[in-house]
Amino acid sequence: MKKKVKKIFQSNEPYIFLIIIILGIVVQIRSGQFFTGNNIVDLLSAMIVPGLFAIAEFMALISGGIDVSFPALASLSAYATTKILLDKGYEGNVFLAFLIAVLIGALLGAINGYFIGYLNLNAMIVTLGTSSIFQGFMQGTLRANQLSVIPQGMKKFGTDSFITATNKVNGLSSVLPYTFLILIIVCALMFFVLRYTIFGRGIYAIGGNALSAHTAGFNVKRTKFIMYIIIGMIASIGGICRVCMMQQCHPTNMLGMEMNIIAGVVLGGVALTGGAGTLTGCMLGTFLIILVQNSMILLGIPTTWSDVFVGLVIVIGVSLTALQSSRTSRSKKKAVKEGA
């Protein structure tokens, strides 16, 4: 029992959780608006798309790689999907949209996967390159501009209320759309895959040490290849969710999100060197970033200083994480010494 408690406090999650709670209390004191139904719903709904992206990025980082192409990938597949459905005059429900987007996402992810997995190229460089290609393809070949009307089924899915929270004091009611369920499902599915399947354990093993993983019998190349396909699929799901919720498709709207997503995942204790980190931590870290970004006004921080504040939270958070992991590794070394 004691050991278990000790183990929990050696990980990052409780600290990130603590920061979230403290920040929440500060916002509550400053504005009296934090622990209200509609504010929580607002935060959860702002979390949906970044949350999906974070799951995708989490896998890339765990495997010792990185993916900076997912915003462009998601934009391209979401745009192409919306455009196809509009051209066909599609009026059915949203499932077809997700299906097409996931297929396109898998294809684009396979491009990343081939170069990174089979040709063993540096993931950062490859995804930087494909990111430009995806953007260029969208703007050049598809001549993408804003689609202000989206298929009815997608619009309905993005605006229909899963949970509606009304604040009794000021009468404001916020809507949490069904896209939130998508985040929950993808999260649960990936939690299972990463924890209980050979493929999932393989990703951790490769991130820890690719050579040892190979020796231990993991097919490193194929695992990486499939992983980038899955990343492409999840990113595309995120793209479709964004289009449904915005009720319009804007081709450049998601670009530039990668940095804050990576920051959130690292904040959650995922090592940039690969091999270590939990999905829970990843989601908590991402939530912290969303929380900070969406509480500047509630906190009463002037616009001029809000970027500084977001940056500060990231730096402090990552420092805590780093401190924590160095402490853990030190105590592990000590344990090894004692054992010897």
Binding site: N167, N170, L172, S174, N253, S295, I297, L298, G300, T303
Partner: peptide, 27 residues
């Protein structure tokens, strides 16, 4: 007075979230 100018980053989603936060904070 408390918040005479806010930023949208030229992004519809940010504008939407910032507006929601403003409305909550200042009845």
């Amino acid at each position: 007075e408390e918040n005479p100018r806010v930023e949208s980053d030229d992004n519809g989603d940010t504008a939407y979230n910032v507006a929601k936060e403003l409305i909550k904070t200042y009845p």
